[in-house]
Each structure stands twice: as structure tokens, then as C-alpha cells.
Design a binder for these strands. Sequence first.
RNA 1: GCCCGGGUGGUGGAAUCGGUAGACACGCAGGACUUAAAAUCCUGUGGGCAGUGAUGUCCGUGCGGGUUCAAGUCCCGCCCCGGGUACCA
Length: 932
Amino acid sequence: MHILALYICAMKYDFREIELNAKVKWQEQEAYAVKEDPTKPPFYVLDMFPYPSGAGLHVGHPLGYIASDILARYKVMMGYSVLHPMGFDAFGLPAEQYAIQTNRHPEETTRENIERYRQQLELLGLGYDWNRSVTTSDSDYYKWTQWIFLQLFNHCYHSKIQKPVPIEKVSEYFEQCGTKDAPFFGNPHEEFTPKEWLAFSKEKQSDVLMHYRMAYQADAWVNWCEALGTVLANDEVKDGFSERGGHPVERKRLKQWFLRISAYADRLLLDLEELNWSAAMKEMQSNWIGKSEGASLAFKVANSDLMLEVFTTRPDTLFGVSFMVLAPEIAMLPELVKPGFEQALDYAKQASNRSERERQAGSEQVTGAFTGSYAVHPISGKELPIWVGDYVLAGYGTGAVMAVPAHDARDFKFAKAFDLPIVPVVEIPEGESLPYESKDGEIMNSEFLNGFQVKEAISAMLAHLEEKKLGYRTVNYRLRDANFSRQRYWGEPFPIVYTKGIATGVPEQCLPVELPHMDDFKPTGRPESPLNKAKEWTNLPHGIRETDTMPGFAGSSWYFLRYMDPKNQNQFASGSALSYWKQVDVYIGGTEHAVGHLLYARFWHKFLYDLGYLPVNEPFKRLVNQGMILGRSNLVYRETATGRFVSAGLVPSSKKGFQSLHVDVNAVQDDALLPEQVLAIFPDARPHLLVLEDGVLKCGVEIEKMSKSKFNVVNPDAIVEDYGADTLRMYEMFLGPIEQSKPWNTQGIEGVNKFLRRVWRHCISEEGHCILDSGHAEPAALKSLHTLLKRLHQDIESMSMNTCISAFMICLNELLDQNCKSIDVFRPFSLALSPFAPFIAESLWEKMGGVGLACKQEFPKVEEKYLIEENFIYPVSFNGKKRFEISLPLSLGVSEIEQEVLSIAETKKWMEGQTLRKVIVVPGRIVNIVLG
RNA sequence: GCCCGGGUGGUGGAAUCGGUAGACACGCAGGACUUAAAAUCCUGUGGGCAGUGAUGUCCGUGCGGGUUCAAGUCCCGCCCCGGGUACCA
């Protein structure tokens, strides 16, 4: 009996056998090998590659991978040569931290994690060509990351021709013209003549040139984290604490590498326009770049030769300036502070030493100090007190502000705090109060600007300033150069050697500079890289190596190019591969990379394009944002006072007096735990401490990010084990639109599993044979099939995979109702299913006598002739309310339809006692009769 | 605070250009098969009211207005949820 049951079961839809069978075939026939086939058009589908963490892949990761796999498989079947690769973003702080915690080497843990990820990805039937995989921590790969860095190091951005030029061009220019009108992007510290330049020492010259390189060094305030022993990027710091670990972060000044992304700010903004990205995504980037147009103008310091330069977007409010404020870090401060006002210097020192955290915490409080100096208003000649305040940022604009308290909220707060004058210069409308920041209104108290509207006044003032040579139009960007140094072990080493203090690039033929293996890679406790401990590596006969390593975004800024030609030993990718694939057609990933990765990748791409290595100037033509799959956490509630575990139904909704504890969702069934489970999970729980409902402890539910720490991670492996990969693939797509975030919930998974079982059972006998016949297909069946195909062609392109799945279900329901057994219908049906459920499709194809691989066949075409309708069922509405339906030939015109409808008894019944006002007929859509 | 998204049955969601709201699926209820269970199949399923019943009827896409023959869809005001961002002069 038991054996018989097993036997029958085996003949049914057995996903294990089906998956194994397909995998073997794909492997034997190298189904996923990607070639540059000149006879086929190229198509490049890219997933954001994962960071292989120790937790493994959870069900949220594959959402995008499955969608892109469906698109890629569909494109293969449509005759494209498709590049759909996968790799690993393996360098970075989390791996290093994990390694330190577990006391193992990151090399080892990273290798293991990658292996685990790869196995999990392979389970899902994703059609990657693993021969093209890249791992950013492989020296074969980071050799080229270093190579690109050297290009940046060796170039300077020329502001006139808007292109990088070799750094030698800069020294040539200095030899001839000095710094006069130098058309180079840089952060110059001084001006000099050609003569002076030639008189500089080698060290001095190299120091000056450093300020012009696209990869340059500069002293900078950095986020030093004592506990992690490393410097963190701004986005790794949240409210003064490290995002990982939550350790306090303070500010320290260090020599750092920077990438001059600011040189590309304008192009990065402008070129957004042509991209097929969501409006939200473009907006995020554009806000991040933060272009603002305004005026730069100089204020003389009274009784001094000093000038204060400020940037303003509101030159129209110039007559409303009542004081000046400088950033605490500004260099000329000591010269401005008058005797008796020395506390301003103390304040500045204190403010610039204060950590981000302290500045943040004290943000409610306005702080500042008077320098004792005055600036002279460039038009009115009035004297304006010069203050220092930490609300002014040294890194933006000139680090100095002309304060217009009446029309700027920050200036207003400052003026109130220190009792400074407030002069309104824009008329304030009824109901509004100071500060009035809107650009609507009429100018007043402003001499020649009085009576102008704000917008007119801005251009009038700009013209006036330029005419009188008091200032000039200028543009400022929020975007700052990217800090490219990390004091960490687990990252790409810089190909830089210091010889007599001069930073020199390692020659190309000496790349890669391999990361030395170190058993002790823990932070040194000083603000420096652990690599400083590897003396045999750092000390060279001719100099000392740079010991900082590159940040996480180094490897991910160009990986999509390496996939095109991953094994190339001579170039990062060959010209032929680059010109064949050109750019990523569709890039799928989460919004969390909106401004980091995506901006840096665009910057590197443009740089390489400018140097002539790439055929196009943007990397990602179309971007699809996948929503996050959220975790559904289970919580148990513990009464703080008594230590009792109380069933969720008995806990007040405010949860007051209760502690919420996460429990592993994989242990919980139907949001409830059995008493013995509670005792097992919480060692200090005792039977008398359990307050149950219906014999169980009911758990609370919360929707939050899936993470190990919240015990709500669901791995795909378990789902594949229970239902098979095809079911998981289709279910993840069936959940809803790809862009939407939603909690993971397996409630509906039976539906898609049932669909696959029904397809199988309908086509394949219990003995495992195809039971379809080759008789003619009925028109109704062909209509169902081609309706499906039409839907698929539309919806796959637009990545609406959820509606594709329901279209499959509708089609199957219809075919089963029609009792269709035609192989001519189910063969194309199976092929169409192949991108979505590749395993079952492969088996069906084989059993139906198909030759070759299903996933390599041509995708079935839509034949419109099967879709032609003769009649349409018109809904007939009265005053917009549908009352009945009538079937009429589609060939009828407007007046014929009207006649037909008005002539039938049903219509007369509804019109009884009312006058006909109007009849609206939309052929093929609706009839609406207006009565009154 | 500002800038984007989004609010549709018990649940996930569908609805091309303003044209039959709730496709498809889950869940639930009832039934068939079975000693029983599982699996499978069939029927019903937005809500209220009336009727034994077929059916009829009113209400219904976060809330309040508006445009229109017709609004989930367009316009105005508001509420709630999610994401981004925050001294950027």
C-alpha cells in the first residue's frame, strides 16, 4: 500500500526528478554559455550583484533575479544574444567585521559565503553563465580596478574641453602660464608664475599637481570610529554612530584619497534626461547633485585688505543682509578676530572639533560668536558684523554666508538668538510671517529694486553686480568629491608607492598590487590601515606602499563592464566585446543604491568613455527598481514586572509594561507557539510563567526588514525543497508588481503550485507519457492560446510578471473547460512557460517530442487572426449605471448600435416614464443612455 | 520640514486612452469521490436591504468637494502609510 502510493506519486508532477533532468540537460548542452554572436542583436540584462553575507540568500534577493531571468530567457527565445551574468561584491567592511567576530580570515569566510550563494542561486534555475562570473576580491578582477584608479590618478579634468587630460598637460601649462587662467579642475592652494613654478622643488611640484589629479589626496575631516578602528563613509554613519555596530564616531583630520566626481556634476545631471529610469530615481540623483544657480559676490572687510566671498541664490535680497556668518573651519578667521573677541577663536576651535554627533544633538540650540570685525555692504556701504556659526558648512560654497534673516529660516534663528537686526525686503503676504522664504512677492526697502517681483529682481541684481564688477553669476553643487580611502584590511590596495614623500603610480605591468595575506588584520587602534602591520609588504627598496585600501564602491563601479570580457588578461575588456554589448539594456536592483553606487558607476563610466575606452557615455539605459520583500516577524510579549510570557490576545494594544521579543519565524506556526517551544527558546521561561490562549502562546506580528537579527529570514532553499523551484519562481512573480515592497507570506503559494500540477497532469499520463493528440486545434483553444501570447509579449517587456502569471492561469482554465487535448496548443503553451518555469517546460517539451532544448526554441508568435472577434457584449448603461448586456456585431457603426439598442424591449422597460436626452455609443466599448 | 511613491473585498492583487470595479489566486463556506484522510473536482463568496426562490434594489476603490453622458483613473482641499533627504545659503 505504502509502496503503491509512492509509485503513483512518482508518476505525478515530480519536481525533483524534473529539476534534475533539466539541470543535466542544460549542463550537457551548455545552455547558458554566452557568445558575442554577430548574427544576433545583443541584449544585456543585469542584476545588482549581491554582497555575500553570512546569512545566505533570503527570499527577497531572488525577486529581481527571477524577473531578470524571465526577461533574459524571453530575449534568448526572441533571437537575441543575451548577456545575463552574476557575480559577487566581496570586499568591504561587513566581511571584515564578520571575520573579526568569528576569528577567521575574510578570504575564507568570503569564499564560503560565495559558494553558499552560488548554490542557492543555482537551485532557482537562473540561467547565468558562471564562466563569466566576477568577484571583486579576486586579484584578476581588482587588477583592473587598480588600473582604472591609475587612470584617474594620471588625469586632470579640463574645464574648457570638458574632458580629462594627462596630468603632464597641467605641468606643461604651469611652465608656460603659471596658474593664470588655468582651465583645470582642482583645489589649488596658491597662485604662482611660470618662473616660480620652475623654481619649485620636485616635491613641491608634485604636491601642487596632486591638487589637480582626478584621484587626489587631501587633508579632510573624516568619521573616525575608535571601536571599528577605521574611517567610515558618510552613509555608514547614522546620527553620530556607525551604522554597523552602533559605535560612536568622532571627527579626525587625515590625509585621504578623493575622486573628483564634482568635475562631472553637470554632465551627471544633464545626462539623466535621456535615461529610462523612474522619475523618483532621477529626482534622487538630481537632488544629490544639488545644482543651484546664483551669484558669487565679495564683501570687503572694513579697515582691512581681506575680502569675504559668499555664494547666494537670492541676490534679490542683498539689501536685506544684516550680518555675515563664517564656518568655524574657515582659514582666515584668526586675521578677522579683533582683540577682545578671542572667544570667537575658542568657539571656532571647539565647534570644528565637535563630532557630527554633538553637532547633530545640539542642532536645536543656535551657537555662534562675534569676531569683532565688520564687512562692508557692496552697494549701500553699511557695516555688517561678521560672526562665526556652526550652521555654516565649510564644505559648501565658500564657507561664508551673507545672512538675510527676514527670508532665510536659519539666518532668522541665528538673528533671533543673538539679537541681530532683521530687515524684510520682500513684501510679506497676509497670513504669512517671518521668515518668509517664498519667491513670490514684491521687493521693498531695496533702492533700485523696489517694485520688482522677486524673479525679475534676481536677474536685475545679477546684471547690476556684473556691470559694477561686484560679483558674477555662478553655479554651486551639493555633490562633493568622493572619499576613496578606507583604513581597512579587506579592500583593494592602492597601486601607489611613496618615494621620498612623492606619491607615484605603480607601473601598469606591475599590476595587480596584491593584498598581502595577514593572519592579524585587526585594526591597529590608530587611524591607519591594518596593512601598516605588514612591514614586508609596505617596505620596498625604493619606497613605501600606500596602506589605505579602496572603499566598497570601487569594485562595484565598473563590474558590469568586466562581465563583457571577464577573462581578459590584457585589458579590462576588449574593444570588440565592449562595442558588441555596448551598455546594460535593463538593470534591476533596489532603490537603496540610488545615489551611491549608481552615481559612482555613471561617473567611472563617463571617465572611461572620455578616455576613449567605451562606445557609449551612460552605463545603464533602463533601470527597474525592485521593491523589498519584507519580513514578517513574530514577537512574544513578556510582562516586565512579573516575567510572565503573555499570549498576544491578552496583551494591551499599547504594549505598555511589556517587552517585545523576536522569535524565529521558522519555529512559529500560524502565529502561535506551543508551551514546550517557548520553554525551549527562552531558557529562563518556566511553565508557571506562561499565560496561554487555547493552549498556545499566540505571537504578535510585525512587518519589517528581513534580517538575521529579527529572526524573520526565510531562505529560498526550504521553499524549493517543499514545492520546487518553478513554483518559487512563479510565486515570487505572482505576489505583485516588481517595484512594490511587500511582506513575505507563503499563504498563496498553493495556487501557483496547483497550476503547475494541473498543466503536468493534463499533458502527461501517470505512466509518464504525453497524452495529448495531434488532431486539429479548435478555434476557441487557439484564441485562448494567442490571447495569452499577446499578453506575454506586452507584459514581459514591461516587467509586469505578475499579470503574466495570471494570464497563464486564465488560459489553462479555458483550455481545461474546452477539454482541449491538442498538442498544437500545449506545445507553444509550454514554450511560453519556459522563461517562467524553465524546469517543467523542459520536461514537457521533451515528452511532447520536442527536439533540442525548450529554452533555446523560438518564442511562439502571436497570430492576430485567432484573436478577431465578431461580436462584442455591450454593457448598456442608463445614466452611467449598467443595467444589462447585449451582444452585437463589432461591424456595426454608431447609429446602427443606437438603433439596435433602442429597439429592444429591455431598453424600453428602463426608459419608461422618462425622456431620452442623449445616447452615447463607443463602438467596441459601451452604450450609455442619458435620461432626464 | 521638504521631495517622491502609495491607500481597491477577509488577504495578495487586476482594471491599456476616463468606458462592465474586484480579473487571477489565497482563504472561507457547502457539495462530490473516499472506511477515513490527503489529493482532485464542482458550486458559492464586496457589503446592506427585500424575497422560499430565480431575482430585485441601494451602497461601494482612504475622506470631503468638483469636472464629465460616464471617475479607482482627471482637478482642488484634507487624512493615513511607505521611501528618500535634511542646516547646501
